[in-house]
Design a protein around this nucleic acid. Structure first.
Lengths: 197, 197
DNA sequence: ATTTTTAATTGACCGCGGTCATTTTTGTGT
DNA sequence: ACACAAAAATGACCGCGGTCAATTAAAAAT
């Protein structure tokens, strides 16, 4: 039997509970940050039992995936509303708010990295979706305003993501944080998108 | 008082115990893989108490850092013995054994990523060291046999690492594993090191 | 209305990483 | 030899994510 056919099975009680859990989690995070979030604290505030949490979310990471994914999506909305950047500096500028969020906590960045690719073929999580979306946006930019013509816009976009991750990673590295992420990313993307040899 | 002056303070008992712990850990890993390693199992085999483990290693990750770092170092020894590659294919070929190890388990790759940058200024862990070493080796290659001349060998090497990480990440992504890591990395590095526009 | 089926919730329980006051061992000064 | 101080080892204990058999509430069948 196809899943679609039995979509009726979900009760509104379920939606209420899930909303309570999401709200409670968001509240905790707003107060104390992502890393400090405890499942026990969330269920306490939501007024449900611990087991209920795990019948709504596969594990703690799944909740984080949703919340963080939603936040990134909000930033992507802003990015998507922009015109295609005409310079590297503009491109970096456009991506900076999203990057700032991604690096607000070490914990957040690690989680994003872990979820940036879909683990199983079926469950492409919210964060993995945002990476797909980001690649699309950048691809569109590069399609409209091409920097390099020897390789496809898709490949260029993949490189942009790779360098974005690299630039962010080095932010958490005590050895390499003398330069700002903006500067570093500009250096990378100039070399990647505007090679002169 | 400088640390050097009081180096005497370590007893042989300490070295014995640490060796026992490392051996036990390696044994467990050889049998069941990295992910399956449990601190309780290790201390049981080593014949010491649980607390002893944590007086030798800050946490479980620190042990993993050492073991995995040592393994990567072994691969780097092999890489370093090679001549500077004259083509992208050769370069990828040289790095492939190391990459294969890094991707032997999802858990291993995640841990490597988390430790690839030094967290605090003081403690540059074994894995972070290997990333530095790898960058040096690639820089030397690019110095001897330059691909691009518009950017420094160091920057080229940073890009190689960024693309290596990207290629590996996509291996664990169910959506993008139709192409082999070798192929993907060759595509990336060709575009990065031999741009034609 | 009443039974039956199915979905949702519960909380005691477990696994495992990590801590710390206490005890044991080792090296040192007398 | 002995006392004493410093280092190392111990294991009971804790925090927290995650499980599952049992219970309760909701929808469907009668």
């Amino acid at each position: 039997m196809p899943k679609q056919a039995m979509a009726k099975a979900v009760q509104q009680r379920t939606l209420k509970t899930r909303a309570k859990l999401l709200d409670a989690a968001q509240a905790v995070i707003s107060e104390s940050g992502y890393e400090a979030m405890r499942v026990e604290e969330v269920v306490l505030r939501a007024g449900v039992a611990k087991g209920t949490f795990f019948s709504h979310f596969k594990d703690k990471d799944a909740l984080m995936d949703q919340l963080i994914g939603a936040e990134i999506d909000r930033h992507l909305d802003g990015i998507e509303a922009l015109d295609a950047p005409t310079s590297i500096a503009e491109m970096v500028e456009a991506m900076l708010p999203m990057i700032t969020f991604m690096t607000c906590e070490r914990y957040v960045f690690d989680l994003i990295l872990r979820h940036s690719g879909a683990a199983a073929n079926a469950d492409i999580g919210p964060i993995a979706m945002t990476f797909g979306r980001h690649a699309e946006v950048v691809t569109k930019w590069l399609w409209e305003k091409p920097f390099r013509k020897d390789i496809s816009a898709e490949l260029q976009a993949e490189g942009v993501q790779a360098f974005m991750v690299q630039a962010i990673s080095l932010m958490f590295c005590a050895l390499h944080n003398s330069v700002t992420p903006r500067e570093r990313l500009e250096t990378y993307l100039s070399a990647w998108l505007m090679p002169t040899a």
